[in-house]
Amino acid sequence: MRRFAPLAAVALAIVAVPAVIAQSPGAPGAPDKTRVTGGTYAADSNHTMVVWQVDHLGFSNYTGIFGDVTGTLVLDPKNPAASKVDVTIPVAKVTTASAGLTAHLLREGKDGGKPDFFGPAPADAKFVSTSVVLDKDGDEAKVIGNLTLNGVTKPVTLDVDFHGAGTGMNKKETVGFEAEATIKRSDFGVSMGIPFVSDEVELKIHAAFEKQ
């Protein structure tokens, strides 16, 4: 899979910067960073996901999703570099467009051997930020942290954009981010099919957080 796997995170965006995707007219959220207030936010698990993509045999890109992300985001608009994110991704809930492939990702190893991918009872993935670095214009950020996946922890850098902020339908202050990263699944002990299925996994994270 050409850039496949998680993170956790949702890993996830932490700073308020201009949105790259336009919101629908009249939507409660808008790419206005003055709407962001400091405090602790919880991941909206219904609207936060990690999308992974890998190259399949050089013919097409294949995509899957990790959803039901949980965790917290601590924001300080006056000092974005002090922001922190800690999210957990349930690998066992991975989904793809093919029931057969989804089952393959989570099946037991043949004859008691090591599973091809995650196995039937995979541990949750987790992303914990260690630093946030804004660019000189303050409109983009790199969120650096540790991703734990398949029992292996490696540093990962997320390229983050602010998507929007406002008051959600449940009357809670909400912030949203988009993030991207590329990892090598072999770094996390998931090497089945390389090089026919790419080692590199592209991650695209869509994250919403509600203020607590």
Rank of each mutant, 00 (worst) to 15 (best):
V50H: 06
Y62L: 11
D116I: 01
D86T: 06
D111W: 03
L203M: 14
P155Q: 06
D68Y: 11
F196M: 12
F177G: 13
L105I: 05
D187V: 03
S191K: 14
L158S: 04
G58F: 08
K154Q: 09
P25N: 00
F4Y: 15
M1D: 08
A5G: 10
G64F: 04
G109N: 00
N170H: 07
L203I: 15
D76M: 08
S45W: 06
T95V: 13
M192A: 10
R2L: 08
E108R: 01
K211C: 01
P28C: 01
S131T: 05
V50M: 13
D139I: 13
L101Q: 15
T40Y: 03
A81H: 05
D111H: 00
F66C: 08
V69P: 04
L105R: 05
A165F: 04
G109C: 00
S60K: 10
L106T: 09
L101P: 13
P18H: 07
F188H: 02
K142L: 15
A42W: 12
R185S: 06
V160N: 13
Q212A: 09
V190P: 02
K93T: 13
T96G: 13
P28D: 01
T40D: 04
M49K: 05
A99F: 05
H206N: 13
V156I: 01
V17M: 14
G145M: 12
K142Y: 12
V10P: 02
D199W: 03
I14D: 07
T70E: 07
D137V: 05
S129N: 04
L134P: 05
L57K: 10
K84I: 00
A43R: 01
V143G: 11
I89Y: 14
P31E: 02
N46K: 08
V94A: 12
V132N: 14
S60F: 07
S129W: 03
H104I: 13
D111M: 02
G193M: 14
L75V: 11
F118G: 00
T88W: 05
V74E: 12
A141R: 02
K110H: 02
V20I: 03
H56W: 11
P25Y: 06
V15N: 14
G164I: 10
A13S: 11
K126L: 03
T157I: 06
T174A: 00
A19Y: 06
S198I: 11
A125G: 12
V156W: 01
A103M: 09
A43G: 00
T102Y: 03
I205N: 07
G119L: 01
P31N: 08
D44Q: 04
F162Q: 03
G193R: 07
E200S: 15
Q23T: 11
A13D: 08
V51C: 01
V152W: 02
D137I: 00
K84E: 10
A208V: 07
N79M: 07
G58I: 10
E108A: 11
A121W: 01
